[in-house]
């Protein structure tokens, strides 16, 4: 399986192209020679052992980390020129839960850049927030403080925020950790619906067992790309990497200190 094989029709720019990317953090190489690309309407699982660089990859695509080498193109543009086209659903512990925001407030945050400096949200923005909340099935929870919602409900609210941002690429970091299985299925159903509308969605996850049921494509990551293709193609290689992972040094910079699911 070559890195070029993607679902996008020939002649069109891929929605997301990661080309020969290397990332160093604190002098340590976290990612090296990472290349793959994804067209519109693909749901991609990013898997690998702890410390494989899954979060680092999503952070790099989000434009949060400098690249040591290579480039990442969004619709053919460098990330700096594509600000706002990528939406990021962070790991839960990176969000400030002390901040008292309702579900509505969080989704409205997604409108901030579209509204523009020194302006207030208008009727169009409120309609947009309503539609996004309805699409993830959270409209009836709009007045609830997000800190009091369950893990799965919070993830839906963040996905709604990404929709309100009108982003084409959604990055979800450890979207399923702390979310019970039934809610995970609900979240996957929402993501598949968004995929069908043409969005490109990357989800970092530990869960190999559900890979083929949930994702169209999968990246097996262990500093390098050790596999890229359909879940069926990637799973054997992934299991190999996971079982040999205990020999690899534990990597705390990835932010995944939990146990693999």
């Amino acid at each position: 399986m070559s890195p070029e094989s993607t679902s996008d029709p020939p002649g069109l720019l891929p929605t997301l192209a990661v080309e020969d990317v290397a990332v160093e953090l604190g002098g340590r190489v976290i990612l090296e020679d990472v290349s793959f690309s994804a067209g519109p309407g693909v749901l991609v699982g990013v898997l690998g052992p702890n410390g494989a660089g899954k979060s680092t990859l999503l952070n790099a695509i989000a434009g949060l980390l400098p690249l040591k080498r290579g480039r990442i193109l969004i619709e053919g543009q460098a990330i700096a020129g594509a600000r706002g086209q990528v939406a990021y659903v962070p790991q839960q512990e990176r969000v400030n839960w002390r901040f008292p925001a309702s579900a509505w407030d969080v989704v409205m945050m997604g409108r901030a850049r579209r509204i523009g400096w020194l302006r207030r949200p208008g009727g169009h923005d409120r309609n947009m927030v309503r539609r996004c909340l309805e699409q993830v099935g959270m409209w009836d929870k709009r007045t609830f403080p997000v800190s009091e919602l369950s893990g799965g409900q919070r993830q839906r609210i963040f996905v709604a925020r990404a929709l309100a941002q009108e982003a084409n690429i959604l990055l979800l970091d450890e979207a399923f950790s702390g979310v019970d299985v039934a809610s995970q299925e609900g979240l996957v159903a929402v993501l598949k619906e968004l995929r069908d509308e043409g969005r490109t969605i990357l989800v970092a996850t530990h869960d190999v067992g559900t890979l083929s049921a949930r994702f169209d494509m999968a990246v097996c990551l262990n500093r390098h790309v050790c596999g890229w293709g359909t879940p069926e193609q990637v799973t054997p290689r992934l299991i190999e990497e996971l079982y040999s992972a205990h020999t690899a040094a534990h990597d705390s910079t990835d932010g995944n200190n939990g146990n693999p699911a």
Partner: peptide, 15 residues
Amino acid sequence: VFATFDPVGARVAGL
């Protein structure tokens, strides 16, 4: 408000 609640998400969104 956005940067206080979710600084990483806000940066990615272009703030």
